[in-house]
């Protein structure tokens, strides 16, 4: 459900940066989202299509780069990837874990168009 708030925030930031660049249109938005962030891409897209209507971001494509949740087992040194749930280390069953990535929730960049003479 919080995808609505996420979509609103993306729109606000994109418009703010686009206006600074005197853009006439935003064509692409690049997002990096770690898999530990509980948001559903399709759901953000759904709200995005509605919210961006009539703005310079209308029809801009959202690109979701999903960052896997990489875990380091501090007991045996094994690195592994979490899918959805937290699991113990697959080699030693330890739970002394360090999260190396997967918590990203960033807007990386936007592609804009600008009219020039």
């Amino acid at each position: 459900m919080h995808e609505l708030a996420v979509a609103e925030s993306i729109l606000k930031t994109a418009i703010q940066y686009a206006e600074k660049e005197n853009a006439s249109k935003v064509s692409d938005i690049y997002l990096q989202i770690g898999n530990l962030s509980s948001v559903v891409d399709d759901c953000i897209q759904f709200y995005w299509d509605i919210l961006s209507k009539g703005t310079i971001c209308e029809q801009a494509i959202l690109h979701f780069e999903r960052i896997p949740t990489r875990i380091l087992c501090e007991d045996c040194g094994q690195e592994f990837i979490l899918e959805n749930e937290l699991i113990p280390c697959p080699s030693c069953s330890g739970l002394n874990l360090k999260i190396l990535s997967g918590e990203e929730f960033r807007m990386e960049s936007i592609e804009i168009q600008r009219e020039v003479e």
Binding site: E21, E108, S109, E111, I112, R114
Partner: peptide
């Protein structure tokens, strides 16, 4: 067209 770097937390 121009690529604009942002690198900001979405929220």
């Amino acid at each position: 067209s121009k690529h604009v770097k942002i690198v900001e937390n979405i929220l």
